[in-house]
Computed example of a mutant assay.
Amino acid sequence: MSIASEHIDRLLPQTQCRQCGYQGCLPYAQALSRGEAEINLCTPGGTAVINDLAKLLNVQILPPADTLKAALPKAIAVIDETECIGCTACIKACPVDAIMGATKQMHTVISAECSGCELCIAPCPVDCIDMQPVLEHWLPQARTLTDEQESDRFAAATQASLRFQHRTERLQRLQRLKEEQQYSRKLKEASTIPSATKSAGKINPAALIAKAMAKAQTQQIHRRVPDNQDSFQQQQIAKAQEQAGYRRAMRDLQYGNDQQKAEALEWLRLYKQQRESEQ
């Protein structure tokens, strides 16, 4: 007898981190319900979630799939605001809307709402986001504080779930608004077509295409960015990425393993050669 995925989902931390290999907590719960996944894939949940899943599904307890990561302390994202270029990539990636900012404006993490999912790190083009360890057992920190760790855990999961739900609803509203605006624009364009382009009460497709192409060309002219401005933007991004690579190499050289140190030394050697050739 399979257990409903909703019951399984309630035991998960709701970080939506995808470290289990699925696109969120509910898809992982659905895979568990179908018997297609192991119970030890949730890194944020650790042994507590594994034990609960084993009890609910009546299966054997397993060690965490990623024992190294499971042993690490909880951590939240921190943005180096002096290096942030305001690209909004991290904002779009955050599943719980825990990052504030706007295009070409400095971004910052709402630390109390961060679930530690790490999804904001990979999209950052200048590598200005790091994970900072915290003493919390469960994330996010914005939850009802209790003396019982078990209750604390589910309060954190509830908070993360609410943030994820609100974000999903917001994106759906924006998508509906966008579709409504597109539909209204098409109706307006259709109503302004001269009667000569209509035949037997039907719109002339050729006239519609010609009108749309003319409008697109006009918009392209107005939106065209001067070549020198586009070049300047690319230079700024390239400079920020180079600085990020240098910081990453220096960090790996100091704290990395043997392979990372070797790669960092090679990167710094090539970096030095490039700088000398430009002088």
Rank of each mutant, 00 (worst) to 15 (best):
E83P: 01
L32C: 04
E179N: 08
K261S: 06
A190P: 07
R163G: 05
R269L: 08
S184I: 09
P205C: 00
C120S: 03
E36K: 14
Q254K: 09
E180F: 02
Q23R: 10
A212L: 07
M250D: 02
N257G: 15
Q273F: 07
S2C: 09
Q172V: 09
Q259Y: 15
E189I: 09
Y255F: 15
D230H: 13
G101I: 00
S111L: 07
M106S: 06
L57Q: 01
E242K: 14
D9M: 02
Q274L: 02
A142H: 03
D147I: 10
P27A: 11
A70C: 13
N257K: 04
D258V: 13
A196C: 12
A200I: 06
A102G: 13
T197F: 12
K69M: 14
A214W: 01
D130I: 14
R143T: 02
H166V: 07
G256Q: 03
N51A: 13
G101E: 04
E180L: 07
I129E: 05
D152P: 06
P133K: 02
K74R: 15
A98Q: 01
E169F: 09
A93C: 04
A4R: 03
W267L: 06
S2E: 12
K104R: 13
P205Q: 08
E81C: 02
C84S: 05
K69A: 15
L139T: 08
E36A: 14
E136G: 05
V109Q: 02
A77S: 10
P13T: 03
S111E: 11
L53S: 02
K215I: 10
P226D: 15
A31K: 04
E136L: 07
R18V: 00
Q241C: 07
D130M: 11
K186L: 15
K261V: 08
I79H: 08
S5A: 15
Y255L: 14
C128Q: 03
P27R: 07
Q260S: 13
P27W: 02
E6V: 12
A155T: 07
M1A: 15
A112Y: 09
L41F: 05
Q175G: 06
L135P: 06
L208E: 03
L12T: 02
R251M: 03
E276H: 11
L268A: 00
C84G: 03
